[in-house]
């Protein structure tokens, strides 16, 4: 058991690395970039601040519970897990490792910059690279895929359908 007072932020990050996104289990919450801040007070109490990727993200409650559980396992009995909305999560918060993990898993990682973000109707869909054959000849099948944070695309070259982790 670790004494709460002695723990470093790095050690805590290692513990939090083991908590994954229930909807994209290949990503840890650190890869996702949703852990904003960790505060250890002089008295040893611990606060973890997380931020949602999407407003309606149904995974947030599960993620909070899982953080609490892993912290309990490591001897933090009174950790507080708080949600912060500001600054707004964007794709930039996702780590490079996270993006690579997504690609290896068969999910196209978010584009560096969102290409479609205005109100105009009937815009051209974002050009997304197929995670299987790297072709850009792909098209949007549905703006929402298996979860709200992913869109469903299909590759016109290898013909495989794939999920795209939407840019935000």
């Amino acid at each position: 058991m670790i004494h709460e007072k002695d723990i470093t932020e790095d050690a805590l990050l290692k513990i939090l690395e083991t908590v994954t996104d229930p909807e994209v289990p290949v990503l840890s919450i650190i890869d996702l970039g949703i852990v904003r801040k960790i505060e250890i007070s002089a008295s040893g109490s611990l606060q973890v601040f997380i931020t949602p990727t999407y407003t309606g993200c149904p995974a947030m409650d599960v993620i909070k519970t899982n953080i609490r559980l892993v912290l309990l396992e490591n001897g933090f009995n009174n950790a507080e897990i708080k949600t912060v909305l500001s600054p707004v999560w964007t794709t930039d918060w996702m780590t490079k490792t996270g993006k690579q993990k997504l690609r290896d898993y068969g999910i196209a990682p978010p584009n560096i910059k969102q290409q479609v973000c205005t109100l105009e109707a009937f815009q051209k869909d974002e050009a997304v690279q197929c995670p299987h054959c790297n072709s850009y000849h792909t098209h949007l099948v549905s703006r929402f895929g298996s979860t709200p944070c992913k869109a469903l695309y299909k590759c016109d070259d290898c013909l495989e359908p794939f999920d795209y982790f939407k840019c935000h």
């Binding site: 407003t55 912060v84 909305l85 500001s86 707004v88 969102q114 109100l119 105009e120 703006r143």
Partner: peptide
């Protein structure tokens, strides 16, 4: 009000998509 501002900022891009999607259907 920091919290109202944060909720609005977070939701804005999502609402932009709702506008786009619904306007395409209206047309």
């Amino acid at each position: 009000d920091g919290q109202l501002a944060a909720i609005a900022a977070k939701a804005l891009k999502e609402v932009a998509y709702h506008v786009r999607w619904s306007s395409e259907w209206v047309i």
